[in-house]
Design a protein around this nucleic acid. Structure first.
Lengths: 191, 191
DNA sequence: CTAGTCAATGAACATTTGTTAAGAAATTTG
DNA sequence: CAAATTTCTTAACAAATGTTCATTGACTAG
């Protein structure tokens, strides 16, 4: 049941059986249907979710539309990290795109793990670091490539996303309107 | 001498006099002139620098030009973080824009602090977290606003950058060519 | 099944940014 | 200081993306 999570955690630090069990006990397992909020606008993010299955997005409201900062899927962690870190109301929202199975850990439980097991400090740091590395890549892709090239990248590297995620969210993730995405797809597929 | 650094560190965690001194001893103080490398392409980043004065940029080579991911100045930390984290050769380079005074801490010294003082684990995490929050804001600004609006933001919020940083680097940071920046400046100032 | 809603596409025109090439201005070097 | 180099600007045209509005297609509630 915790196999996927354990595998990911062990990539981050060499946790003992006991340390793994410690987190298992603290997790809340949640099945949540599509288009539900994990974090609402203005709410303080007080948990981190591990994605057992499904797709979620982190976005924010800008002049009436939702701008997608990130789309995340199986075996990743997700939260409105800026709010989680600063403990201030989130300007970002976290929302399911499809039905999801999540394992949720609350901030107080995470803090408990930090204080009890030194290894967990490392894990916490490494999870955030990995989110950061991911974020770097995103900045470079926005700075250097056209929306069309970014689309082609998804097409080749993450084709599952195109099967499971409505195109409007893909468009927003690429930083363009859905009309532009339609036009661009026409070009890509006619070639 | 360490006043600025101490002030920043104390914002991150409640360090004792002893814990502050511990880092002072481990710092290397460096004066470095403009256009020098802190991290070269392919090198493994093994230190983090605190900027006492001056401007630096983190960028990477893309088809012959340097794409600027970040420009950083006084009272901030800078490194090729992805390389620092993963301990793999850096695809990013770190370079001074102006003459700089830096306080540099090597990875092994940072690790020593992590292991010796529990508070320092927190500091390390918080420094990375802050870099992350910064990175989020950058993604949203790239996704939601035009180059012109991003320029106006710098004009209003960071006018010192425009005084001290060559426009070509500003252009690269904005994600446009320097020709486009010239054109855009003409519009902004004529209004 | 059907009406109603939401998602995706399409087309025409506008705006933003890129590209190329040239020249002006500023800075560095001898 | 003068030449050389680098940085910044300008202009004309091209390409990418936005905007508006209409249409089609898919999904959902009753």
């Amino acid at each position: 049941m915790f196999d996927d999570l354990d595998k990911v955690l062990l990539r981050f630090a060499n946790l003992s059986e006991q340390e793994l069990n410690a987190v298992h006990e603290k997790l809340e397992i949640v099945n949540i249907s599509k288009n539900e909020y994990l974090v609402q606008d203005g709410e303080i993010a007080d948990s981190i979710a591990f994605i057992q299955s499904g797709y979620l997005r982190v976005c924010f409201n800008h002049d009436g539309d939702e701008i997608t900062r990130d789309i995340t899927s199986v075996n990743s962690f997700i939260t409105a990290l800026t709010s989680f870190i600063t403990r201030k109301p989130s300007f970002e929202i976290v929302k399911t795109i499809t039905d999801c199975e999540l394992m949720i850990i609350k901030r107080e439980n995470l803090n408990y793990l930090y204080q009890t097991y030194n290894n967990w400090q490392t894990i916490g740091r490494r999870i955030v670091e990995e989110m950061f590395v991911r974020s770097q890549k995103r900045i470079y892709s926005l700075l250097t490539s056209s929306a069309e090239d970014r689309y082609k990248f998804i097409l080749e590297e993450k084709p599952d996303m195109l099967k499971n995620i409505p195109l409007q969210y893909i468009a927003s993730y690429l930083g363009i309107t859905s009309q532009s995405l339609s036009r661009l797809r026409r070009n890509v597929y006619k070639q």
